[in-house]
Design a protein around this nucleic acid. Structure first.
Lengths: 144, 144
DNA sequence: TTCGAATCATTCAAGCTCGAAATATTCTGG
DNA sequence: CCAGAATATTTCGAGCTTGAATGATTCGAA
């Protein structure tokens, strides 16, 4: 019988690693959700706010959130209804939207970041370990 | 003015790392989804199948999938309807279910693992890098 | 032993996410 | 310039996920 690829030690290690990456992402999500709830936000809304480092298009936000643009539409709709974000016409491309935080949105984002800064699952790693992790993740993400 | 915790370089690095962990988890999800679809499964169903390394309870499966038990109920319902998995009474605890793959389920799992074994985002890392990543993830997950 | 706390699983409502289709606009080769 | 390809966004249907509430069973300490 031919040994199948899926049963090689290398493949088994990769599967386990998949579960761990997923598990850590889950932990991060829980951490965000916990503090988001305290501010009257959902996890998705908080993630969007966290990624709004400045004005950007829907697509850019979707990429930062690692989700589909259609989902960004959904989340921005909610934030807009709460008066935290606005869709302005894009200065150079009439297809695109120029997303901008309102003063309320900026204040909310500041409060959120303050809460997220303590007790993150990643705080379990010292700065050097974080640097190494950063390098490995970058490698895995860009080359795939 | 007091410098807020959220604006320290350390906090900024952690936020970026959050996005990357989430991004990689997303890539893994896409990879699973792609091959799951080819087998007529959804991503969640494929993940459940991947984690069914042997008989286990609902809670164990949920933990392996990094999700709530209520979600495992939902997914197992679907797999059961497709005749891939069965809920047996647990031998020693009448509260619990003993999940077991059917022959069809085992065959499906084998086919799935075969597909997942090639082109995983984690394949971008050589075995040594994977070992290091494993260690860092374990540290972050257990100490948080 | 027995009662209260903890655990296993499920149901349900609310919200998230993807993927495909549709619209509007921009880009590009001829 | 112009037609067709590419891109930005939105809408919608289907499926995923959580958290709270519920019922059944087991555990543990007095």
């Amino acid at each position: 019988m031919t040994t199948s690829r899926a049963q090689e030690p290398q493949a088994i290690a990769e599967r386990q690693l998949c579960g761990m990456v997923n598990g850590l992402a889950q932990r991060i999500g829980e951490h965000v959700r916990e503090h988001a709830t305290a501010l009257g936000l959902t996890e998705a809304q908080a993630t969007a706010l966290r990624e709004m480092t400045g004005p950007m298009t829907m697509r850019e936000l979707a990429e930062r959130m690692s989700c589909e643009p259609s989902n960004a539409t959904f989340v921005v709709d909610k934030l807009e209804k709460q008066g935290l974000i606005e869709r302005h016409p894009h200065p150079t491309d009439r297809r695109a939207k120029h997303l901008v935080l309102t003063p309320d949105g900026t204040a909310m984002r500041d409060r959120l970041l303050e809460l997220l800064a303590v007790g993150s699952p990643l705080a379990a790693l010292d700065p050097e370990a974080q640097r190494v992790l950063h390098g490995l993740l970058k490698q895995a993400i860009t080359r795939s």
